Simulated assay, not measured.
Amino acid sequence: MGLVFRKRKKIGPLILNFTENGYSSWSLKIGRWSWNSRSRAHRYDLPGPFSWKQDKSRS
């Protein structure tokens, strides 16, 4: 198993995601709801260790 570098930079509700190759994607998180630019998935945090995810397929 290899080592993976990840870094997140938060600027208010905007989150920038970086890997060893540089910029990866951005996310928007408002309260319990979040959206990721790469996966185009909506997530909603539920109580405990659970979350609900709705994927948006790319056309």
Rank of each mutant, 00 (worst) to 15 (best):
M1Q: 09
M1W: 09
M1R: 04
G2V: 04
L3K: 07
V4P: 01
K7L: 12
R8C: 11
K9M: 11
I11G: 02
P13Y: 00
I15W: 01
N17G: 13
N17T: 14
T19A: 13
G22R: 15
S25N: 11
L28W: 10
K29S: 15
I30M: 00
G31A: 11
G31E: 11
G31M: 11
G31Y: 09
S34T: 05
S34F: 02
W35L: 00
W35K: 00
W35N: 00
N36T: 12
N36Y: 13
N36W: 03
N36F: 03
S37I: 01
R38C: 07
R38Q: 08
R40L: 11
H42Q: 09
H42N: 14
R43K: 13
Y44I: 13
L46A: 02
P47H: 06
P47C: 04
G48M: 02
P49K: 05
P49T: 06
S51A: 08
W52M: 04
W52A: 07
W52V: 01
K53G: 08
Q54K: 09
Q54I: 06
Q54A: 05
D55T: 06
D55S: 12
K56E: 14
S57P: 03
S57G: 03
R58L: 13
R58T: 14
S59N: 07
S59I: 09
